[in-house]
Design a protein around this nucleic acid. Structure first.
Length: 271
DNA sequence: TCCACTCCTAGCGACGCGCT
DNA sequence: AGCGCGTCGCTAGGAGTGGA
């Protein structure tokens, strides 16, 4: 446990994009913020659930449940730890700091030694001195204009827009988008998820799944620019899902539009 | 628009597990 | 006994819905 003096010298790094995450609520954000105050520059920490519960004035089961949720949506990875003697230690939490953080793109995320590092003062990670706001320019909130949109169910035949597909191809060229769209729709229907902006939600899911390594690579090259798609007539893809076929069709349309407009392929969406 | 009812969810206590 | 965590079941409050 930390003393007030330690708390005064300890602080955390909170990425602004967390606020825009479609599945992150106030409770989840509070825990992320609390974890951030314990985390090192790589977002790694291991305070006990009891400590978090005490800090946030909530019961430990509540903290546990919210942590599970954060793990489910990919903002935190939870690893159970054992001491040298086999005793059970507090869980290790890896905060997802970067928005497009892919598992393979985190070489700086080195494994944590097995020492009994916890939230005690001596082990509280020391924040780097370079965590000042480098970009003071405020980005206008896209939700501020036009009012608050109503929540919508994700229909069974929902498909990403050509812009969504172009964005996905630019950011995750190796991901099987058709399969991911199908999984996204099924997941939303299974859990009853509703969104104000389904496209933004899908992009967020894609980003999370790619970071968590839950996406499947394309079975063969799909080059939007050259209009090459997984044709259903291909014997190797005879079992191509309806969603995949729809996505491929959409990608073909997107490519046509792109070619027609002669615009650069780079898309810069924001969450 | 107001009221009553129903349903869902968050929060919590209690208990159990595995280990020293 | 103590520690850290998972899970079950209960309760209270809020949201949603339908009728007057």
């Amino acid at each position: 446990m930390t003393t007030p003096t330690d708390n005064a010298s300890r602080w955390g790094k909170i990425p602004a994009w967390w606020l825009d995450h479609p599945d992150l609520d106030a409770d989840g954000f509070a825990i992320l913020a609390a974890l951030a105050t314990f985390a090192d520059e790589n977002g790694v920490c291991w305070p006990s659930q009891s400590t978090l519960a005490a800090k946030l004035k909530r019961s430990r089961p509540t903290i546990n449940r919210i942590l599970q949720r954060l793990g489910d949506i990919g903002l935190v990875s939870i690893e159970h730890r054992r001491g040298r003697d086999g005793s059970r230690l507090s869980c290790l939490y890896r905060l997802r700091i970067a928005q497009n953080e892919a598992a393979a793109a985190q070489p700086e995320m080195r494994p944590v030694p097995d020492g009994d590092r916890d939230d005690s003062p001596a082990n509280a990670p020391c924040p780097t001195p370079s965590q000042k706001q480098l970009h003071s320019e405020q980005i206008p909130d896209s939700h501020a204009s036009g009012g608050r949109r109503p929540l919508r169910d994700v229909p069974a035949d929902w498909m990403p827009t050509p812009d969504d597909l172009a964005w996905a191809r630019n950011h995750f060229s190796s991901v099987d988008l058709g399969r991911h769209v199908e999984g996204f729709v099924l997941r939303c229907q299974a859990h009853g998820y509703r969104y104000r902006d389904i496209s933004a939600a899908w992009r967020a899911w894609l980003t999370q799944d790619a970071a968590a390594g839950k996406t499947q690579p394309v079975k063969s090259a799909v080059t939007v620019g050259s209009m090459t798609t997984n044709a259903p007539t291909n014997a190797g893809h005879a079992r191509q899902s309806v969603a995949e076929q729809r996505v491929n069709a959409w990608m073909a349309v997107a490519a046509r539009l792109k070619d027609a407009q002669g615009t650069p392929s780079t898309v810069h969406p924001r969450f």
